[in-house]
């Protein structure tokens, strides 16, 4: 069975009957690169949030299996420790918590494995070495490790720090929600290299994007088009080029007919 199996997933805004996801099916495994494209407001971020366990949405139908385990039964922190990662389209500022401390807490939470696990904190010198290496690869200035996470960071900086967290947590499946948006040309290459280094037998990624450019660096095995809460088309890398020239209008017509 693929590592991530999404079957007929429906979700509403919590406490309302506004349905945003209207039956999503998608399967992927470690080592694979999938991309989701689709118009603004079609439900891409909603899907990523629902998979991560965002409290603002409730699943009304369908199931999600992660390595055979029912993902929807898990709280967000458990999903993360199980190996799911989300690079947020709009990362949150965490005032008063430094980048280094935040990531160290996250790493230690993973090592502990849960509230009932045994504390097994990473040794500080070892952690420092790891984070410094990861920061160097992402060309992040060392001094930023002592700033409050995302607090006053530029849009592009926030995205780099999402990837830094991914690199430190080493997930099995990473959802990257518009991580390429807001990155300058050099940063896009740096971040893409970072993603490519991690994708392999131990990690697969689901890239949500509006642009062909990141897919030139991180070559997708499959592209899915999400419209109005449904995946309306899936195909190979060529689909991105097709969309780039013709937009979503043609697909919309196809779907209607």
């Amino acid at each position: 069975m693929p590592d991530l199996v999404i079957r007929n997933l429906h979700a509403n805004i919590t406490g309302t009957d506004t349905e945003l996801l209207k039956g999503i099916d998608l399967q992927m495994s470690k080592g694979e690169i999938h991309a989701i494209m689709g118009p603004n407001g079609s439900g891409k971020s909603t899907l990523s949030h629902v998979l991560m366990g965002h409290p603002g949405y409730e699943v009304t139908e369908g199931e999600v299996l992660f390595e055979g385990q029912n993902l929807l039964d898990l709280a967000a922190d458990q999903r993360s420790r199980a190996g799911l990662f989300l690079s947020f389209q709009y990362p949150f500022a965490v005032p008063g918590v430094t980048v280094a401390n935040f990531i160290r807490m996250a790493v230690n939470a993973h090592r502990k494995g849960g509230p009932d696990g045994v504390d097994n904190p990473v040794r500080i010198p070892e952690f420092r070495k790891q984070i410094q290496e990861a920061m160097e690869l992402l060309e992040i200035d060392k001094s930023m490790a002592s700033r409050s996470l995302n607090d006053g960071f530029s849009g592009g900086e926030k995205k780099r720090f999402e990837i830094l967290q991914m690199a430190m947590l080493q997930p099995k499946i990473a959802i990257l929600d518009e991580t390429d948006s807001g990155l300058d040309i050099d940063a896009l290459r740096i971040v893409s290299d970072g993603i490519n280094r991690l994708v392999g037998p131990n990690m697969g990624t689901l890239i949500i994007t509006h642009y062909q450019r990141i897919l030139d660096y991180v070559k997708p095995d499959q592209i899915h088009v999400l419209m109005d809460g449904r995946i309306v088309r899936s195909g190979g890398a060529e689909l991105a080029h097709e969309l780039e020239t013709s937009g979503y209008a043609d697909i919309a017509k196809e779907v209607v007919s």
Binding site: F88, G96, V97, M105, A109, S148
Partner: peptide
């Protein structure tokens, strides 16, 4: 709650996440 979710999405349990947020808030 969104900030708490962000911390939890990194594997940090709810109570711990809340503690970090409160401490960070006072840290300012």
């Amino acid at each position: 709650p969104m900030l708490r979710f962000y911390l939890m999405s990194r594997g940090i349990p709810a109570v711990e996440a809340e503690r970090m947020i409160v401490e960070g808030f006072l840290e300012d």
